[in-house]
Simulated scan of single mutants.
Amino acid sequence: MSQNHATVTPIDDRSTWDATVEALGGHPLQLWGWGQVKAEHGWQVERLLVADPAADPGSGPEAAMGAAEVAYRFLPWPLRSLAYVSRGPVGDPERAAEVLEAVAAHVKATRGSVALVVEPDWEAGSPGEARLTAAGFHRTDATILIPRTLILDLTRTEDELMAAMHRTTRANVRKNLRSDLEFRRIATEAELEKVLTLYRDTAARAGFGVHDDDYYRDIWRFLGDNSPIVAAFDDGEPIAFVWIARSAATAFELYGGVSPAGQKARANYGVKWAAFTEMKAAGCTRYDLNGLLNDGISDFKKQFAQHEDQLTGTWELPLSPLYPVFAKAMPLARKVVTRARPAAKAAIAGAVPAVRRAVGGALPAARSVVATVRSRGSRSGQ
């Protein structure tokens, strides 16, 4: 990494942090509440403000070079931890490499993490990519958030958004709008519990994994107004929903579900449209449908526009001499940072013997490195 004289300041105040994220046009997964959810479920989280030392300290968050909410996941000894920045850093991509160099130096000095993994909210081919490469980052296929996605431009009119849909999709949306279904945000914890039941049932039918219910309750609790759930109600019962995380600029789809009755009524079409228009009315300028794969759910998402978006993907910076051990022997451990993987804990546990074998079989020169890391780990308590 190049010499970087930027200052890094941990932020411990929620209002200050969120004001910074919003002022710099940040993603909702960089908001305080999202980090708090992660902190309740096995991560350590810190929020780092990066500033040019020449900047006026009283000029407010707009003068910051950037910021990053960093989540740390412990790894088996001697790897210590993995540092992860979800849809960050926040700030101008032109200065992102400087920001991340400063963040990486802080992480290395204070945490000793084996690597820093970042997934910026940039389009593929952004000028920031060349700067990351120059700073020592490399792109990895071990993605956490899916870079192939669909992002709607909410500055377009509702007529323009509707015109971009497939013809049958428009017809289903309009049919919903003429029906007796009610589309609105859920408002009570009792309604939240019904949504969670609906989500579990959807997951069982579709065959995807979910977190325990307390995880979703914590999103509702800690993100608050930044995590609206828009649902379709039939006689007061939710039959389809879309769960969103949102910042001032960006709406990011987290989860969705539909009951058999909702499928029959095509309520999953109307509720998507309700989510788009709700976020547009709230002032968001972009709506990210969060990931496209080759599956039925993605096929459904693609009906709402006639384009796809490719984000820059996942970038990784080695921070430890033991990074080759991590890269070679820890593919399962990487899964602890992915979404809704019920086997994540088992994967981490199963990776421990692989790490021990890799370390035990290393060249003699590597043994001194391991001894050094062991000494650091004992002093730091990590």
Rank of each mutant, 00 (worst) to 15 (best):
A115C: 13
A23V: 06
R131T: 11
E119G: 01
A23Y: 07
Q30M: 04
H106V: 01
T110W: 10
A39L: 07
L132C: 07
W43Q: 04
R73G: 13
L100D: 02
V70R: 03
P127K: 07
F74D: 15
R139C: 00
S113Y: 05
L132A: 07
S59T: 09
F74P: 14
A134G: 10
E69W: 02
L75K: 06
A83I: 03
E98M: 10
L49R: 11
V117F: 00
F74T: 15
Q30E: 10
L49C: 08
V70E: 02
L82W: 05
A83V: 02
S59Y: 09
V118I: 15
P147Q: 08
L49A: 15
E46P: 01
V70Y: 03
P53S: 07
L100A: 01
V21L: 06
R73D: 01
E40N: 15
Y72D: 00
G88S: 08
L100H: 00
A19N: 12
V45G: 06
P120M: 02
Q36G: 11
G88R: 02
R14P: 11
G60I: 09
R111W: 09
R14G: 05
F74S: 15
D56V: 08
G26I: 04
D141T: 14
T110Y: 10
A135W: 02
T16W: 10
T133C: 12
E22G: 11
A39K: 11
E22Y: 08
A102K: 00
A135L: 10
H138F: 15
P78F: 06
A96Y: 00
E22P: 00
V45S: 01
P78K: 03
R80L: 14
Q44W: 11
P93S: 08
R73M: 11
P76A: 09
A67E: 02
H27L: 05
E123L: 15
A109H: 10
S126K: 05
G42F: 01
L29P: 03
T143R: 13
E62N: 10
A54V: 12
D121S: 11
G91K: 02
G112A: 07
D52Q: 04
P89I: 06
L145C: 12
P127L: 06
I146Y: 09
L82F: 01
G136F: 04
